[in-house]
């Protein structure tokens, strides 16, 4: 199974094994990772699973849908060009090794 790495604001990192067909958010919450709230449970409605995608990976992710784009305007931490909602990043074998940075705040 592909594994992905979350880097916390303090620089510590967590490497997480993903399950079949999981989103990055689901993998994070299943492992009890701090820093991903996912209040809406993965329905692209709350913007509390915000991540910054590592530059080297950004172009390799599928394009975001309009609803994700709109939600990112309301994130608690600043929206950057690398901002995505982790519930909308479905982990495929091609994303093995993906690096995601966590924002300071989710609410």
């Amino acid at each position: 199974m592909p594994a992905i790495t979350f880097i916390h604001p303090d620089g510590k990192s967590d490497r997480v094994e993903t399950g079949d067909g999981e989103s990055a958010m689901q993998a994070a919450t299943r492992h009890g990772l701090d820093g991903i709230l996912a209040e809406c449970g993965g329905n692209a409605m709350c913007a509390t699973c915000h991540v910054y995608v590592d530059d080297s990976w950004l172009a390799r992710l599928p394009d975001m849908a309009d609803d994700e784009d709109a939600l990112l305007d309301g994130t608690a931490s600043e929206r950057l060009p690398s901002s995505r909602l982790s519930c909308q990043i479905k982990i495929t074998p091609a994303l093995d090794g993906l690096v995601l940075r966590l924002p300071e705040r989710q609410v």
Binding site: T29, E39, C40, G41, G42, N43, M45, V107
Partner: peptide, 27 residues
């Protein structure tokens, strides 16, 4: 508790559209 995934606001396309208002008021 990690409450993510509870269905108090529903889930899927009909999940409560006012959930953010509710959470803000509650918080």
């Amino acid at each position: 508790r990690r409450t993510s995934g509870h269905v108090g606001f529903g889930s899927g396309i009909h999940m409560c559209v006012g959930q953010l208002v509710a959470r803000l008021e509650g918080e």
